[in-house]
Amino acid sequence: MFRKILRITGRDVRSGLRDNIIVYVILAPFLSALILRGLIPSVGANVLQMAVDPSVEPAVVEYLETIGKVEVLEADGEALERRVRATDDVFGLRQAGEGGFEIVKEGNEQEGMDEIFELVLDAYVNQDLELPMDALVSDIGWKLPPLKQFGASVLVVFMSVFGGMVILINLVEEKQDNTLSAMNVAPVSRKAFVIGKGLLGVVIPVIHAFGVLLILGFEGLNYGMVTVAIFSIALISVLIGFVIGVMNDNVISAASSMKVLFVPILASIMGAIFLADKWNPLLYWSPFYWAFDSMNRIVLLEATWGVVLRNTGIVLAITAVVFALLSRRIARGLN
């Protein structure tokens, strides 16, 4: 069964790479991310990344986490130097005597960052003194510029539809050429066929998400969470792709039916960004709201597995309802 599923997916890949629309759909998110990156001045420049020796107290780590990306090392001693020497821009920090710190740097870090780091530490050590540090600190923290924060999340959630688009196009083609009948007289179960056809619909969005986030400079995210969030939201588009795909034998009209999906997506995302918190319950019906919420937290490094799994659960529940409503139509269309 597994072998046959992969054959079916493999055929779609091969055929898809010969289809201009599909190639475009696959490339579009990466192109959008590149454009977005051009619009955000020096993406990643104002991210302070720190590796912390185990000698540093948890309270300090907690404080630093509000400012930048903190990595707590497990081993002490040389491990810190080794970490700092790695290719990325990371400052090292270890406790040096009572209340003092030692900053370890490589020397090729981004200009000015070391001073900022020192200021940050000063601010902590002298937090009882009323120094005008807060303003500076909040500017350089992982609080992202809105274009980057929302840009990434919007792009990633929005692009989850594109997997469904690819399914749609491949299915419409099967309808158009009636190769569906040939599949129906092959020793391939309906389940294997549907999974084989649907696989690309979730794999492509996850690849898109990884690509888009990496292009935008989000190396340090929890990509496990990204995978879970995107996988679940992509299922909705897979479903919609199937329904529209099996009912159409014309690619253009099918694709324009699919575009209708953009309305709830955009509404959910715009609502989540611009509506005051008290109005958010108005969007609770929308799986895209929950997926966007997950992604937003993930890029802000605020996400916990608890929240991501809760949101994913909600998305899956809504998907299940949609599936229950549409499964008969899909089954009929596949005959």
Binding site: R3, R14, R18, T179
Partner: peptide, 18 residues
């Protein structure tokens, strides 16, 4: 009813493996 984007041989190779 054959896959237009696949070659004749690819059509048969795909189907045979099912």
């Amino acid at each position: 009813n054959v896959y237009g984007k696949l070659t004749a041989l690819e059509n048969l190779e795909f189907y045979r493996k099912l």
